[in-house]
């Protein structure tokens, strides 16, 4: 067995060799380089972790957009179905059409997803939710013959299913954002996050009807 197979011995020999070779200044330089290397490794780790979380958020966002898109696609069908009824209230349909147009304008940059962007997106989508719900409510209340058709009932089922999916995907998105924001704001990592261009992302807030029972004025 050769001497270089004993790793500890080799390391000790190398250190002694370095010690005898180096001057004091060199030792300082080596120490700094070592510290920088350690910090760099840590920074790379932080960056990669944040990238992973960011990817998860974007994946979840894509799903959110998917299910909202699904609803967008159903709305022309809803409009044309109820439009067929004579004297159908124009104002109800106008509200749906306007809300749909509003959603089309509220495009969001998936790479940022800032709190303002998510809030604006949610506002536009929630307005559409309300308009769709209102359309169905009005139809059920005043146009029973329309409600009885299989076409309308199928459409209603599809819209309900879409709302369920929206709720699920919004929940998943919030979970992903929570993991991201936590990783972002935890102490040592928080020092670097801003430098690497990671910023806090926005959540979806609970739908209004769920928040209704708890009414508190924010006056500080």
């Amino acid at each position: 067995m050769c001497w270089w197979h004993n790793k500890k011995a080799v390391a000790a020999l190398v250190l002694i060799k370095i010690g005898t070779l180096m001057k004091k200044g060199t030792v300082v330089v080596v120490a700094i380089v070592a510290v920088v290397a350690v910090v760099a490794m840590w920074a790379i780790g932080v960056n990669n972790r944040l990238v992973t979380h960011d990817e998860n958020v974007q994946k979840a966002w894509a799903q959110v957009e998917n299910v909202y898109k699904r609803r967008m696609d159903l709305i022309p069908q809803l409009v044309s179905t109820v439009q067929g009824a004579a004297d159908y209230e124009r104002s109800v349909l106008t509200e749906v059409t306007n809300a749909r147009a509003g959603v089309e304008q509220s495009a969001v940059d998936a790479s940022t997803l800032s709190e303002e962007q998510v809030r604006a997106y949610q506002q536009a989508q929630d307005r559409l939710s309300k308009a769709v719900a209102n359309t169905i409510k009005v139809t059920v209340e005043r146009y029973p013959e329309l409600t009885a058709t299989q076409g309308f009932r199928d459409l209603q089922t599809q819209l309900e299913g879409t709302e369920n999916r929206i709720a699920v995907e919004r929940g998943r998105f919030n979970e992903a954002v929570q993991a991201y924001n936590t990783a972002l704001r935890r102490f040592p990592a928080s020092l670097l996050a801003g430098v690497f261009g990671f910023h806090k992302k926005g959540y979806f807030t609970a739908p209004e009807e769920a928040a209704e029972p708890v009414k508190v004025e924010f006056n500080f």
Binding site: Q63, T157, E160, G161, R165, A167, V168, E169
Partner: peptide
């Protein structure tokens, strides 16, 4: 044999 870890997106009725 046990559940397989499937995921649900809110489909159904």
């Amino acid at each position: 044999g046990g559940f397989g870890g499937g995921s649900f997106g809110g489909g159904g009725a």
